[in-house]
Design a protein around this nucleic acid. Structure first.
Lengths: 238, 238, 238, 238
DNA sequence: CATGAATGAGACTTCATTCAT
DNA sequence: TATGAATGAAGTCTCATTCAT
């Protein structure tokens, strides 16, 4: 579970602005407010004073902590990416048991800790904005794409080495594993926020389960049902 | 095939601009120029006079065809969505043969006709901007998401009905099928355009093959190898 | 006499803004307005929209012609300096007759065409701002200081060569010649504009005459009175 | 001698700031820091916290001593003007001997005590800013311009009365005397601080000598060589 | 139809000033 | 006294949009 709170900082007991309320909390609050707004509206459409307001401070205060909108943006990305990376490292450290179970656990943790978190919105803005911030590309590649790839390829490699999985091209399998998760994360922050009549609704947990069911069978050397087939939802094949 | 051309309109044989020529092509040229720029820079960062310039007309002319930047944007989305939809219809019409082969063909066609096309960039901007243009959400859902879902679910349904595929929740499987393709399409227009040191490189065709290999095995009731196992790339399990 | 008019451009016959009034006059009008304001208030204290307003256009229009306040400033300096330099060249070309007369003519022309012109205010801002615009320093040195020095040193040199003037260090004499003129020009745009009780008032023409009288006598090999002694003003030695 | 020190206040022997020390020196330190910065950057471009920092105090502290930036500026001008005035009075008191020698001594002392001093920068800012701070005009006129004028006119008057000098308009002669000095003082704080390729370089002492040589000869009734002709610099008449 | 000069609202950013500590 | 975090008015600059030609 994530500890990200919608912030908008308590508007300070009206009547008197407590100037030095909580100095060292400011950067966090600003980053949180900025994350929310950048994810909601995108980089360009987010106004700096709106960010400040959401963080409960004035426009000028924002600039005490971040020298420009661009730097604020990068800080948001870096800050939230750090969390992602930390999660990744943690997950790697937890590796024990058979590879199939590992994958199951890995994906479950990723969803709980990243995909299902507002920080997942980071993916949306990064996808949308990298071309405007070329420096981010390298950063994101180094800090997210490559580690994530390494995480999954090493896991698959293990399964292949142990004879659990068929020999398959590692990076491509890794992408097949991650893509649906990231896709869901993206969707949650774009279409997932729009009221749509007759939208195709899927339960993330169900998607995850089905995805794993499909993939693990696909990876398995024999028809080893790594997990019991996900039962079709009641109402099943719509 | 789509009519998207690299645009920037032929700079008119120097000396005397035969401006009158191709008057009725203007809207198309403007849409094409706008698509390129919206995909590259995003909605907000694209300037209207840049669009006009790329289309070889003046800023004022753009406003003769589209009453505002917002309308231009929506027109771009609608126009390119229509193209996507047309492709979709065409694909549906081609349905023949066993379900597994259908899926293979379907995905291949989608990649050739949409994913691997500059128009695929439309996905990126739609994901990035729906929340700022809610009218687009319903439109996109109705015209793209639902039909695509129907396409894939019906295909899967057929496979289940015929006993080829295991009974699985349809929409979730459809997502698992589509996600890696769309993910790749998105990537081509964000990270794919950035020069990155040590980037994780995958061959789209290989991803497609591996993805299908995995999914079809995963769908299969028995270990029916729907297609010969995708050979690990030379240099294989790295 | 100068043709510089206080501009503030005819506010356009109210009711309807004549959009394309006189395009090619714009830069001149903007430069004139900018000169007035920069001289009056200094660089930093002059607001760009004030300049635009004085030129009878909107804020945005200014930026169609000059990409930034800084460039506008430099353009003002260059534009008005160009005139100075042209005058200088012209004067050099006119050189005929004895050196003393040349100096008299040179100074008289300088005062009429430069010192007594609003462009003289340029000196004030340049003195005040060079340290904030290091590129201006080189420009001003190359375009004004060095040519002016050359103008006067060559003139003095001629006098020395012809035996009219005593041998004296050229550059230092040139400074002694120019300093009082420039000083007066500066004063006209600083204290000269302030209402001061009991100010020390001097008539520029009288200063010029006295200055020449002193200097020419000082330069002369003998006591050749290059010009009849400037008669003390009626009311003379206050 | 003036007490202007390069300021930036001793950074307080690291470890523990003996901040209480020299409390009553604060205003002086602030004025000194402010002078440096105002001279370097001008009024508007000087930031108050930079002044505070240079004086080794915090921004808030500055406001304990001076209620606003404007008041600080005026205090700087007044403070340094007082210094100038004191110098002036002292110079006046030293008057002895023949008028020509008096002038020589007067100018020499002015250069040593004012012109060649960082406080001379005060002239630059006053010239640049009087129009924005009209209160200073009267003050400067009363306390600097008029006394200086009186100093020189009385000196010239004496020479005329004693038959040493030709009868000439007094104020105009006074200006001719002072202008080159002040001009040099101004230059030292504008162009003199900029690294310029091929700058016209003059030795202040040489300028002073030449100036006096010229002026005294110019003033003299006959060809009384008030001082031996200033020898042309080695390399002389270039 | 087409142009492009002109507009002005609005965004980002700075910095003099305040005030709780 | 001294601090420095916080403020918000004000300035520079951008760019969607208009309209006379």
């Amino acid at each position: 579970m994530h500890t990200h709170t919608p912030v908008t900082a308590p508007p300070a007991p009206a009547g008197h602005a407590p100037r030095q309320r909580r100095k060292e909390a400011r950067p966090q609050e600003l980053l949180a407010a900025a994350l929310d707004l950048f994810v909601e509206k995108g980089y360009a459409a987010t106004r700096t004073d709106e960010v400040a307001q959401h963080a409960g401070v004035s426009k000028g205060t924002l600039y005490l902590y971040y020298p420009s909108k661009e730097e604020l943006f990068k800080a948001v990305v870096r800050h939230n990416l750090s969390a992602l990376i930390a999660e990744g490292q943690e997950m790697v450290a937890q590796f024990v048991g058979p590879s199939a179970d590992l994958l199951v656990q890995l994906m479950g943790v990723w969803w709980d800790r990243v995909g299902n978190t507002p920080a997942a919105g980071i993916h949306k803005i990064v996808f949308a904005e990298v071309r405007n911030f070329p420096e981010l590309a390298q950063f994101y590649s180094d800090e997210v794409i490559i580690p994530a790839d390494r995480l999954f390829t090493s896991c698959v490699q293990r399964g292949i080495a142990s004879g659990e999985f068929r020999p398959l091209p590692l990076h491509e399998v890794a992408q097949a594993l991650m893509a649906p998760m990231i896709f869901m994360a993206l969707s949650r922050h774009s279409f997932g926020c729009c009221p749509i009549q007759g939208a195709v609704l899927v339960d993330p947990a169900q998607v995850l389960r089905t995805h794993l069911d499909l993939i693990l069978r696909g990876l398995a050397v024999r028809e080893a049902p790594a997990s019991p087939p996900a039962p079709a939802r009641p109402g099943g094949a719509r």
